[in-house]
């Protein structure tokens, strides 16, 4: 059942991606990107990554839509025709994709228990977490307790990025 859901959702994701490439109207691209985000969040949900699903929906469907619309206000709504041939970018993209697929062959099977990620430091966190922090969700414990300073730095980066975007999107008032 999970396999079926994942297959359908990933096919739909591919279809929407092709649609985003083909459509020239940027409004439609923003709307399709929102739909893409919701489907991607569903895939994350099925893969048991609830926190990632939440982030994907909030960032992809929520804030990205609003920011993209804010940026759209500063430009035209129709995408300009490409000036150069797409053959070289296509070649690069296909090459990168092939390398990534080749890389997945080296990965251990999904969810296997005797892989390094499940036997090494992950197991350590699982064993020590409850006694040391008392937070039932291990992901939260790692993010907010064991890597607290790391998360603090991330928050600072996101805050800076937010300020930068606000300054970029601010419309300057005409004088006089």
């Amino acid at each position: 059942m999970e396999l079926l859901i994942n297959m359908v959702l990933l096919t739909l994701l591919a279809a929407i991606t092709i649609g985003i490439i083909r459509v020239r109207n940027l409004f439609a691209v923003v709307v399709l990107a929102g739909a893409y985000s919701f489907l991607m969040a569903s895939v994350m949900m099925v893969l048991d990554a609830v926190d990632v699903a939440m982030t994907e929906a909030a960032v992809g469907a929520g804030i990205s839509t609003v920011l993209a619309l804010g940026a759209l206000h500063l430009t035209k709504t129709e995408e300009a025709a490409p000036r150069y041939s797409a053959i070289l970018p296509l070649f690069v993209a296909v090459g990168t994709g092939a390398m990534l697929i080749y890389g997945t062959w080296g990965l251990p099977g999904f969810g296997l228990a005797d892989t390094p990620m499940n036997t090494g430091v992950g197991l350590d966190y699982l064993n020590r977490n409850m006694a040391e922090t008392g937070i039932p969700n291990v992901v939260t414990a790692v993010l907010a307790s064991y890597r607290g300073f790391d998360t603090l730095g991330e928050v600072a980066v996101i805050f800076t990025a937010g300020i930068g975007v606000l300054l970029l999107l601010k419309r300057f008032q005409r004088e006089g």
């Binding site: 409004f27 949900m45 609830v50 929906a57 469907a61 929520g62 839509t65």
Partner: peptide, 29 residues
Amino acid sequence: FLDVGITYALLNMIGTLAVLKFFRYGALG
């Protein structure tokens, strides 16, 4: 994990209304 669903419902609304507001006024301000 139904809490996530509540977030989705609210985000869905926000996205739709943001696009519609942009259509109507050409800006979000």
